[in-house]
Nucleic acid binder design. Structure first.
Lengths: 350, 350
DNA sequence: CCAATCGGATAAAACGTTTTATCACCAGTA
DNA sequence: TACTGGTGATAAAACGTTTTATCCGATTGG
């Protein structure tokens, strides 16, 4: 007799049909104020809670949106405490729309994405799948509303939200140039150059760097690009190379973790920051303000990124919202203590 | 005619009953090798994928496990890049068991947890709900398998996985004592003392600190406890108080972020670490190795925490596994550069 | 006064599975 | 021969919703 109470029990107790109860729950068909109130009272009394799987079977939906992140995708800033904020933004937005978020890390090569169809996911948010990623066509083929974060995909059919990486990198580089630096090393990450466009985020930052050089009439020199992993260790190792490059007085790292590794590495070489070298990072991690010295960096509002993406996705799901577009979020340069005027070291040396 | 193909289509195409198809899918009833192969072939040919909501309706399950985290719970180290690793561990473990993870941040006071029943979640992982939290009885009342992470709940009925905070704190304190420090400031967080036991993690660390003092025959002095927020800012502010405490030569912070704030604050006061003050943190964040100086801290394997928790939960769901227990994971002291012998400053001053 | 409209409610048919009870068949055994 | 037991397969009854088509007044319009 320990039977979960369902819509039929409510109907019976209220003396109405189950269709009416359903209508009350979903606020759909026509039902008089009086019966509505009665049904609602009964629902509360009985403590009825709907059986969502049943509803989902009938409606062919799931009220679930999937967030897909790469588990170990090379070239991503995988060690960053980056995803959490993003996820927090998504989750918050989804919950307002009575959706829930289902998270899954995927293996680029193998993953079949079958669960999307199986579970009848209502939408998908894909993080960090670049232009060349096999994931992109696979997701598109699913026929499910989707939005890509940090992807810079060329197809105008796809919904995207990205940071204005190019402007951010431009601002960072221009800041260094304004301080008198002429040769600025670049820590780009270690993917092969011909693949760089596939990692759109990094490519855009490279473009921003070039923009700023060009604007200042400075040459873009290939030997200033350091291809090392986008990690603390990579940045640390980069210090050796930076120190060996003649006339280089500044470095721009494409992530804060790299920048932190670099600062540490430079110090171990006996170099001081910003006295001997200026350093700029990218991301503005919450710790970047508290490193010593505090890191000059490009800030992005990751939480907002998540919020914007989910809002866009829900719009797609509900059929409202523009057919497809790319939303670009602003990047902001935050000047702290790792950057200073060029020539300080030279002045001392002379 | 654009009809999603279901189990009936497979059955028709294979010339068998739907029951048989169901059996081969689930590997349940008896079905001959021959027909099994035939059905499997048809399934592949037709590209059939099961409709999970339908299955879930029938089986009254969801193959979903929920992860519940506090959104803004006071006293938690909310800014830490902590949750992501935990979640990664959980997700990995769940996926092996064909479960998926549904994430939700909850508002302690308001949240009704209704979605657990509505969606027929198979299990719940609750993070950081202390002994006094209203969440705990609510989860227990749900009657769903659950495991609590970082909770230190007294009830032996509840499944828990925690770090060995007490031993970790003991090791940290003993390390400082071994270096000759006699008065060690403690950055505990800012919850009122009488509520401290509710934040089990912090309380255990306090106990570990006391253990070490007692072992060394040192007094436990209440005025060494600094009640400031468990954040970078809190640690930063603590520096003023630490500097004002007579004869204090070391500090133990209950999180790395606090420790980092403290180091920064001390430096702004003109104090050097570890020359004037030794500092120990807790957590071993991935950045802690790269701060300057590198942080001495207590390390915990957060990924493993997630993995262990989900394994425990799946055991509960499947009915195997011990009825209920508390798993304690080891903590390890990592000595880096923020700790050094006491008396260095005194020696200089004299 | 008849037809048309409308508000309120309902019966019953799905939705795509799993599962229980049953069946047909055959081989061995009494 | 009749019975038992096992193997392979199936028909049909759920599971708890949503939704479509229908119905029954009562009101309105001509």
């Amino acid at each position: 007799m320990n039977h979960e109470i369902g819509i039929v029990d409510v109907a019976k107790a209220a003396g109405v049909s189950i269709a009416t109860v359903s209508n009350v729950i979903n606020g759909k068909g026509r039902v008089s104020g009086e019966t509505r109130r009665k049904v609602e009272r009964i629902i509360a009394e009985l403590g009825y809670t709907p059986n969502l799987p049943a509803r989902h079977l009938k409606t062919n939906r799931s009220d679930l949106i999937g967030v897909v992140v790469p588990t170990m995708q090379p070239g991503r800033l995988q060690d960053n405490p980056f995803y959490w904020d993003l996820l927090a933004g998504v989750e918050e937005g989804a919950r307002d729309g009575r959706y829930h978020v289902i998270l899954t890390g995927i293996d680029e090569e193998r993953e079949t994405l079958a669960f999307v169809k199986e579970r009848r996911l209502d939408g998908l948010i894909v993080v960090g799948a670049g232009e060349g990623s096999p994931l992109v066509p696979r997701v598109a083929a699913l026929g499910v509303p989707a939005v890509f974060i940090d992807s810079y995909l060329r197809s105008p059919e796809l919904n995207q939200v990205v940071l204005d990486d190019r402007s951010g990198a431009h601002a960072a580089t221009a800041h260094l140039i304004g301080l008198g630096h002429r040769r600025i090393a670049l820590l780009t990450g270690d993917m092969p150059p011909e693949q760089l466009p596939y990692f759109g985020v990094l490519y855009e930052r490279l473009l921003g760097y070039r923009d700023a050089l060009e604007e200042a009439g400075l040459p873009y020199e290939g030997d200033l690009l350091l291809r090392l992993p986008t990690s603390l260790e990579g940045g640390f190792e980069a210090a050796r190379h930076v120190a060996a490059l003649p006339d280089v007085t500044a470095a721009f790292a494409f992530s804060d973790v790299m920048a932190m590794g670099l600062v540490k590495g430079l110090r171990e070489q006996g170099k001081r920051v910003p006295h001997d070298y200026s350093v700029v990072g990218f991301d503005n991690l919450f710790v970047s303000e508290y490193t010593a010295p505090a890191l000059t960096t490009v800030s992005q509002d990751i939480l907002a990124k998540g919020r914007v993406a989910v809002r866009m996705l829900l719009g797609q799901i509900d059929g409202v919202g523009d057919p497809a577009r790319r939303i670009v979020l602003p990047a902001e340069l935050i000047v702290r203590e790792t950057t200073g005027p060029a020539g300080a070291a030279n002045a001392r040396n002379n």
